[in-house]
């Protein structure tokens, strides 16, 4: 009975530790995917603004819908605040929406979230305040900055996904052996 309990405990430790490792591993991929989503959203935003001359609120919604995930939530919320008219500039609305999103995003990346999306916050200050050619320049600059962040995140994900997938189970195994 005692042995059976030890085996069950060891298995539980290995599984829980392994799952924690997998969560961390997946979060690296999610991080890269979210940044890719933002790059897509900015590409659509550029098209909406420079070719479609779509009003900013609607343009942000379209951009968010095409990317999904956090860009969709953030841009839809920013568009709501903007169209409500009482919150301030596009930059203020995007900052507010990002702050709300930070509170609900993965705890692993909440610290890095602001750093990653600094380019979007800076872009928000310029959005809607100049002609379409200038808007395209601002969006393209922000997009390049985000693309660099995405590449770094992709590289980190390639290395760390395998590492953390195995690490979780290994640490779990070591703890189980130590406890037994």
């Amino acid at each position: 009975m005692r042995v059976a309990l030890k085996i069950a405990g060891a298995a539980l430790t290995i599984i829980s530790s392994g799952l924690a490792g997998l969560t961390v591993a997946c979060s690296y991929r999610t991080h890269a995917r979210e940044l890719a989503g933002w790059v897509t959203a900015l590409a659509v935003l550029e098209t909406e603004i420079s070719y479609g001359l779509t009003k900013l609120g609607q343009a942000m919604r379209h951009a968010g819908q095409s990317a999904g995930g956090s860009p969709k939530r953030v841009l839809a919320r920013a568009a709501d605040l903007l169209e409500d008219g009482g919150y301030g500039s596009a930059g203020d609305c995007i900052s507010k929406a990002l702050t709300e999103e930070t509170a609900s995003c993965s705890f692993l990346w909440s610290g890095k979230w602001r750093e990653d999306l600094e380019a979007v916050v800076v872009l928000g200050e310029a959005l809607g305040a100049s002609d379409s050619a200038d808007q395209a320049r601002h969006i393209s600059l922000a997009s390049r900055r985000l693309e660099r962040r995405r590449q770094l995140a992709e590289e980190a994900a390639t290395v760390n996904y395998r590492l953390w997938s195995a690490m979780g189970f290994l640490i779990g195994g070591m703890v189980a052996i130590a406890l037994i």
Binding site: I49, K55, L56, S89, G128, A129, S132
Partner: peptide, 12 residues
């Protein structure tokens, strides 16, 4: 902001 709906580019 309110009159242009933050969209100067659309109102050139």
């Amino acid at each position: 902001r309110l009159v242009t709906e933050c969209s100067i580019y659309a109102l050139e």
